[in-house]
Each structure stands twice: as structure tokens, then as C-alpha cells.
Amino acid sequence: MESLSRVQLALFLFLLCPANIISLWWAVGSPLVMDPNSICRKTKRLAGKQAQLCQTEPEIVSEVAKGARLGVRECQFQFRNRRWNCTIHNKYFRKILQQDIRETAFVYAITSAGVTHTVTQACSMGELLQCGCDRSRNHSPPLPGVGTRMEGTAWEWGGCGDDVDFGYEKSKQFMDARRKKGKSDIRTLVDLHNNEAGRLAVKNYMRTECKCHGLSGSCTLRTCWKKMPNLREVGTRLLDRFNGAFKVMGGNNGKSLIPVGQNIKPPDKHDLVYSANSPDFCLPNRKTGSPGTRGRTCNSTALDVSGCDLLCCGRGYREQTVVVEENCLCRFHWCCVVQCKKCTIRSQLSLCL
């Protein structure tokens, strides 16, 4: 049986490789769709419930692929101004995924969240036969006044709520690899913990939306449903967890994670955890997966992680003028031509040395 890190590493490297994408354009602007047969055929390390999904629910695997790619794109957005910017060049990204550092924790969490989000959304959009809208009536009542101009209004659960439980289970089924019975290691425990933190960042932050019904704009009845947070909100929340991530070591029982340091509370299910310190990512290093920051754009006036002092690791930076031609002073002429002039736009970029 393969360990979690090897299985998920193989999955990530396959899902994220552009050469493995088969573009099936439904219409102009449609997203790329992964061919699930390619995933299941080429990713040899899949086993157990993962292999079962490939055989019985290939359309779910397609959503898994889209979710993983969306998760990495969100990672690139959240880390766009940091020394490590979630680059997915295989010669570097492979090394990142092989370590138990904070950056790896975020990648695992956001991709698991992305899969949960994408599968759940596909259910709500009617794109999967196995699921649909969440029609559960077991939710607690919505708060007074939510989605209406009146308090004390009658309400009922309805609409098309997001069935996040289905997306959660499918993400857990595919992203969490099986382990040998009775065998645990720090890598497996850390990766499983971060996968769960990503899924919970979606599942535990569902919000209630309501619509009013009644004559002449009155709100005599509200129909309410549960909706997921958008993935940007999930990414921002996980970035906060990344900033406060816990360094851990394995417990003596082989099943628990213990925070490193004194008087530190144990991490809860929403926290991100890691067991090894990150490199500084200042210079290219294939061994650590660092692409370096030379040539990166920085902000010469900022004092945060995007500032040139931090991003360039004290090496300094150079100013470069960029000249771009854009349409400007456009006018509409009857009928029916738009005529524009060409304007030269000059901007200054600060680039790390």
C-alpha cells in the first residue's frame, strides 16, 4: 500500500501538468475539463476507494481534477507577493510536496478545499447524477431578519442548498489515501490533518441565504437555503491558518500530533500543521524546491512581504521602465464604428536582483 504522500504527490503532479489536460470546450470561455480516464490510467498509485471512484464514478474524478487545479490557482493568488509564490514547475513543485513544511500544508489544504467546493457546486448545478441540491430539513432555523426587511417572518427551508456533505465525502475519499492497518507516521498524520482542515474551511462556514415571498413586495414568507463560501474566502481563511500554523511532532502512540515548544495549545482540526522548517526561498535550490526571487516584481514602498527588502532578501532591486500601447480616447461614430487612438503608457517596475 502506498503512503499518502506518494499517492497525493503522483496525483498533484498529474493533475497540474498542462500536457495532461484534454481541452473539451463546451462553448466559448468554458473551463478545461480533465479526461478522468487519463487520470485513472496514468496515476498508477491509486488504490482502494480511489480506484473504485475511477471505475464507477469517472465524472466525479473529472470534478476532482478541476477542484485540484482551482485550488492551486487560489494558492498562486494567495502567495503572489511572497518569496514562494506557489509556482508549479515540476522540478521545484515536486520537492515542495515531498517536505512537511508550512507551504506544503497550505497546498494540501487548499486543494482538498478546492475538490470539496467543485464537487459540491457540480451537485447544485445538476451536473452529477449522484447528487443534487441539499434538501435537508435538519438545519437550525435562520437568524431573525436574515434575507428580509422584517423580523419574525415565517420561513421554510427550500431553494437549492449546497450539498456540502457530498462534496466533503468525495474529497475525503479521493484525497485521503489508505494506510496500512496499525501503521502511522508523521508524514501521513500531517497530510491527513491538513486535508481535513481544507475541507472544514468549506463545510463549517456555510452561510444562510433567504428569499422573500409575498404580494406587493411584502415578506410574509422566507425561503432559505445553505450556500458555500466562495473559494477566495476559503483561501483567505486558510492563509490566516498558514500564518499561525503549528509545528508538530508525532506522539508516542503513533496516532497524535504534539506541538513543538512549551505552553502551546494542541492544534485543532481547523489549524494547519507542519513538522519541518521552510527554506528561506531566496535563491534557486532544486533540493529544497526554491525557485528563488531573482527577477520578481516587488513593491519598493511596501513594508509587508511584498516589499522589496523582504522579497529580494536584502539583495536590492532595480527599476525598469515598461512601455505598453493601449487604445484610448475612443469615440463612437454613427453608425456604427468605434475609433480609438493609440496611447503610450509608461510604468515603473521594481525587480529583485
Rank of each mutant, 00 (worst) to 15 (best):
D309E: 13
P279N: 06
A51N: 09
Q121H: 13
M125R: 15
L311Y: 01
H139N: 13
L349T: 13
Q98N: 14
L11G: 05
L215K: 14
L32S: 11
S216T: 11
R41P: 07
C340N: 01
E103L: 09
C123H: 00
F106A: 05
G126L: 07
L303S: 11
T321W: 07
H139W: 14
H117L: 06
C212H: 04
S112E: 03
R83V: 04
S112I: 04
V305S: 13
C219A: 14
S218N: 08
K226V: 06
Y274S: 02
S300I: 12
C282D: 05
M150C: 15
R318F: 06
L97M: 11
V273I: 05
I258D: 04
T111A: 12
V28H: 14
N253C: 12
S5F: 10
L257E: 02
P142D: 01
R187F: 15
L9E: 10
S256C: 13
A51I: 08
G67M: 07
R178W: 15
T148R: 08
V322W: 09
Y92E: 05
N230V: 09
V146L: 11
A109M: 01
L46N: 03
S218L: 07
N138P: 10
L143V: 14
L239F: 14
R83L: 03
R6E: 15
L128A: 04
D185F: 06
T43N: 15
Q320R: 13
L303E: 14
W155P: 01
N299V: 09
H117I: 05
S136K: 03
R73K: 13
D268M: 05
N327E: 15
N20F: 09
K91V: 14
G251L: 06
H333R: 14
V146E: 13
G167H: 01
E209A: 14
L189K: 00
N85E: 10
Q130T: 12
T220H: 13
G235L: 00
C160D: 08
T111P: 07
S347P: 10
W155N: 03
S171I: 01
E233L: 09
P259N: 07
V323A: 10
G251Y: 07
E127Y: 14
L238C: 04
P142H: 02
T120P: 00
N253V: 11
K66L: 14
V190F: 07
G182H: 02
I110E: 01
G214R: 00
L15G: 00
C330D: 10
Y92M: 06
